[in-house]
């Protein structure tokens, strides 16, 4: 039986070989990287243009909004880079390609992660970091050692949550592959939602984003802590540090769901 570490090592090896295969077509490889950067430069531009027309948002300065935006975006893009293989689960199931995952001596989930490797999300990653850079220059955060140490934890929790969300989408496709566009509302929608202060949204959306999909715990509340702001929703201060715990719980549920999905897998043909 393989340990998780061994599995990860094998997965990284596989990803490396897949990447080597991509670089075999350098023109298309660089074009993808280039276009990814252009897309995200344009998005930064639109965001800055929007901020430029307004002063603040729901009692937050735009620098503070940009900070929240930056951490969510960075987490989302790292998560998306790792989980890009999960995007192809619906098509793998439709075309019967998923069979082969199940005849190999590696966790089906880890195999799915590395079934595709793409660097096109690097541009998005850069977008998150650039916006975070802007935000740090626009705000004057009172940094302490604890806050500095908590930053990587915030990003890591966000990454884990987004990977869990992409997994959730893949799980749904074990039951239905046709209405899969709904899930964009949860993944990309979730990412967009995490980029803005939670208190500007209606109550039902806030509750959804805290207690069903715990995105509020991985972005908004930790940001309140770093920025040293009061919580207009009046929740206890503990909320600011619950992210890792809540995300771990969410991941457990998703992991259980993945196994249920595998059990439900019907293959195709006779």
């Amino acid at each position: 039986m393989l340990t998780l570490r061994q599995e990860c090592r094998i997965a990284i090896r596989i990803a490396g070989i897949r990447l080597r295969g991509q670089i075999a077509y350098p023109a298309s490889f660089w074009m993808q990287i280039f276009s990814s950067f252009v897309i995200h430069a344009a998005e930064i531009l639109a965001l800055l243009a929007m901020f430029n027309r307004f002063n603040d948002m729901g009692e937050w300065t735009l620098g503070e909004v940009a900070f929240l935006h930056g951490i969510s975006m960075t987490a989302f893009s790292i998560g998306d880079t790792i989980a890009v293989g999960l995007d192809s689960v619906p098509s793998q199931i439709r075309e019967g390609e998923f069979d082969r995952v199940l005849i190999r001596p590696l966790s089906s989930w880890i195999q799915t992660l590395v079934s595709e490797v793409s660097l096109r999300h690097l541009g998005q990653c850069a977008q998150g970091v650039v916006i975070l850079g802007f935000a740090l220059s626009w705000t004057d955060i009172q940094w302490t050692l604890q806050k500095a140490l908590f930053m990587p934890v915030i990003i890591a929790t966000g990454v884990a949550l987004f990977i869990a969300l992409f997994t959730l989408v893949a799980i749904l496709s074990f039951w239905t592959v046709n209405s899969i566009e709904v899930v964009n509302a949860f993944t990309y929608g979730g990412s967009d939602l995490a980029q803005f202060p939670l208190h500007i949204f209606d109550r039902w959306m806030r509750n959804l984003f805290l207690f069903v999909i715990p995105g509020g715990f991985t972005a908004y509340y930790p940001a309140l802590y770093i920025l040293g702001k009061d919580d207009p929703l009046g929740m206890t201060d503990t909320f600011r540090f619950l992210g890792p715990l809540v995300t771990a719980g969410f991941c457990l549920v998703v992991a259980w769901g993945w196994n249920q999905g595998i059990r439900h897998y019907r293959s195709t043909g006779s």
Binding site: M1, L2, I17, R18, R20, G21, G96, E97, D99, R100, L102, I103, R104, P105, L106, S107, G269
Partner: peptide, 26 residues
């Protein structure tokens, strides 16, 4: 499933177990 996978080889005539975009050696 995983321990078993180590003991079996599978060939589906209709569907390759290889990676479409990779060379056979890879």
């Amino acid at each position: 499933r995983k321990q078993l996978a180590q003991q079996i080889g599978v060939v589906f005539g209709q569907r390759t177990q290889l990676w479409w975009d990779l060379a056979l050696a890879d």
